[in-house]
Design a protein around this nucleic acid. Structure first.
Lengths: 157, 157
DNA sequence: ATTTTAGTTCTCAAATTACAGAACTAAAAA
DNA sequence: TTTTTAGTTCTGTAATTTGAGAACTAAAAT
């Protein structure tokens, strides 16, 4: 009979979220910090609590928190008469970040256009296909923009 | 007076596309191969042409081409009486790949739901915010799915 | 049967990344 | 003024990634 405590479940969940966050571009350590703050009850945790709970070095936590702050994924609050900062997930910032990611990959677009300009017209089928890819990107980006607008309208106050 | 030849421009363009492809998850070398095939006139190039033009090792090109083949980003044709394979961009596969990427990040979703289940109801505001993030993801994913359908309808046959 | 060729696989070195641990800093507390 | 504390920065290293070069392979050409 295998008994799994709540703590064990929590730690496993943190690891799983860490792995996913890694796939989304964060490092394992940063992913774990983010995961911990997602699970944290209360949702604000001090620097000390974080590195002790996750058993990470102070340097890793310091760098990780700063990376997350810069990405706008977390924020912190303070309490009077307490020098500690209490870090927590910035849900608004997280959503902003998600939106940007969904909209992203805009930078390849102009390069494909440049490619098209540089190509001869000896292979019109391939050129057409490239044009279609550009058109698809344009179309999808526009649709996503509208979808986001739609969402914002629905959820704004 | 700085003179830039067509060749120089092409090479620079390859590098720029390579950098962008890197950001999209490919390695620099694989990004360059992809870029070269995008610019290639005719759009089919042999193994030999690729590694000679890009001045890369055979091993790097072999591994790179196989990675691109596996991702469905390129394909190849053959000619009777010629043992070489001629590699070219698979525009359909590329678009499929793009679609998947746009739809992606489904795997974090269920984990956030798990987090919510594990959370107490002592901090309802944070929980609400997490729920909103889930809802946003669901909404956007649905919208994107529809957008892609719309595109496909418009561009089928 | 021998040689060529198209491409693969193996081995290794260089570069990069991720992080621990220790030394440090600046503000607050004592 | 001295000490504590919250966090940063520096240094070194282990792990990982990338890609070169050489040795190899399997099929085709001779």
């Amino acid at each position: 009979m295998k008994k799994t405590t709540k703590e064990q479940n929590t730690k496993q969940l943190i690891e799983k979220i860490g792995v996913q966050s890694e796939k989304a571009g964060l490092t394992p350590a940063v992913g774990r910090i983010f995961a911990y703050l997602m699970i944290a009850d209360p949702p604000e945790k001090s620097f000390e609590e974080i590195y002790q709970y996750l058993q990470m070095s102070k340097s890793a936590v310091s760098n990780g928190l700063n990376a997350l702050l810069q990405h706008g994924l977390i924020d912190y609050i303070t309490h009077t008469g307490d020098r500690k900062r209490y870090f927590h997930i910035n849900t608004k910032g997280w959503m902003e970040q998600t939106k940007k990611q969904i909209e992203g990959q805009e930078q390849l677009q102009p390069l494909i256009k440049e490619v098209l300009k540089s190509r001869s017209n000896k292979y019109p089928e391939f050129n057409k296909a490239l044009e279609e890819i550009i058109a698809f990107h344009d179309f999808i980006r526009e649709e996503i923009k509208n979808a986001i607008k739609k969402w914002e309208k629905k959820h704004k106050k």
